[in-house]
Amino acid sequence: MNAAAFQAGFARALLDPEAAPPTGLRAAPGADLARRFAVYRNNVAHGLIAALALRHPAVQRLVGKDFFAGMARAFVQHHPPRSPVLLEYGDGFPEFVAGFPPAAGLPYLADVARLEAARVGAYHAADVPPLRLEAVADAAQDAPLRLALHPAARLLRSPHPVVTLWAMNAGEMPLGPVASWEGEEALVTRPDLQVLVHRLPPGGAGFAMALGTGAGLADAAAHCPPGFSQMGTLAILLRTGALVEGGAA
């Protein structure tokens, strides 16, 4: 038997619950071959669904365990991991959630998933000491610092109250009615070992992204809404560990 062709068929049958086991397998006398093959199929599905559930406790809380498992199973079947490094698995899941018809009634769900994916990214990001407020104050006397985003910093703009929804479903805030259903901007940081989620003032995410790509303060604030506080937001970014000193000008 050609090993590559056999493993291709085995892999296809693992991901397709309707497929028959590949030929060439043998079960012990009295054992049902399909039932035995199903152990491998279940291992694959359960392991990957569990990996997604671990990344997305708030999404799971919002839709319930059974709905989540069904949604995750559909994702796994069509988007198996492309790498054995499973801590990276599921980066495409929020996009899949956005287009998952049974979840269409929860238009905010994909953004909650994006925030949770951002938290996982921050958790595993490179260890770099963030830029401190004092360093900026010292530098300002001669030449302004060039800024960049810290490797753990993640920004998310949502038309939904994504930070509030995440916090209520991640045990960070008591569950309750959302006082005002407005878009929120999220900043995820990990200045040391703990992942933190912050809510930025409107315009803050765009401002931080612009700063992070080397724009000066005035340029970064150019598209921010009236009343936007550059210095106030810069202080938040520094206090939360979102910035590092950028490369040479």
Partner: peptide
């Protein structure tokens, strides 16, 4: 084995 093509199948297969 656990990978085929670009897919990682996340189990130890026979």
């Amino acid at each position: 084995w656990s990978s085929h093509g670009p897919a990682f199948l996340n189990d130890l297969l026979p």
